[in-house]
């Protein structure tokens, strides 16, 4: 007799649990306001990334096309993947001394794992993270970038 009642209570509890489950999906079905999907290409205009977002490594330039990198190479040493190559150049300053400046700061985006060590360890805070996140390109060579803009120079007093 006991198993007889158990049979029916099993059915009852089973159906009840199924109805509870259906109430969840049913409720979401009738509340389209809770949809969380973002319409990506349409919302591109007002898509705001967080300020710390690590999209790519960039070299910070000010309005006068000047940066703070003196080509010391600490970022290159700190990079675990070898995705940064610093090519320094020597120029003769106004006082006649030759000094070390950056010729090309090459950054291989395809090899970067965004660990942030280059940005953190830069002694003169020359590097930062950009907000760009649409990195897809058709040609892998386009992922190799030169970070210092052409014609840029170092801010006085940083070196």
């Amino acid at each position: 007799m006991n198993s007889f009642f158990k049979y029916f209570s099993d059915i009852f509890h089973g159906v009840k649990s199924l109805l509870i489950g259906m109430s969840v999906t049913g409720r979401y079905f009738f509340s389209p306001g809770q949809i969380v999907t973002q319409q990506y290409p349409e919302n591109r205009k007002n898509l705001q990334m967080f300020e710390r977002f690590k999209g790519e490594v960039i070299m910070l330039h000010d309005g006068n096309n000047q940066h703070r990198c003196n080509g010391c190479g600490i970022c290159e040493n700190n990079c675990p993947n070898g995705s940064i190559e610093v090519i320094p150049a020597k120029i003769t300053g106004e006082d006649g001394k030759s000094k070390r400046v950056i010729d090309k700061h090459i950054y291989h985006l395809g090899m970067c794992t965004f660990c942030g060590l280059c940005v953190k360890n830069c002694p003169s805070n020359a590097l930062g993270f950009g907000q760009e996140f649409e990195h897809a390109v058709f040609d892998r060579s386009k992922l190799t970038k030169v970070l210092n803009q052409p014609g840029s120079s170092i801010i006085k007093g940083v070196e």
Partner: peptide
Amino acid sequence: EETTGSRFLQSYNCPGGVM
């Protein structure tokens, strides 16, 4: 993402503290 800059692989810790 807001604090560490990454969503998934944060590398947020560093020896001695956080980045």
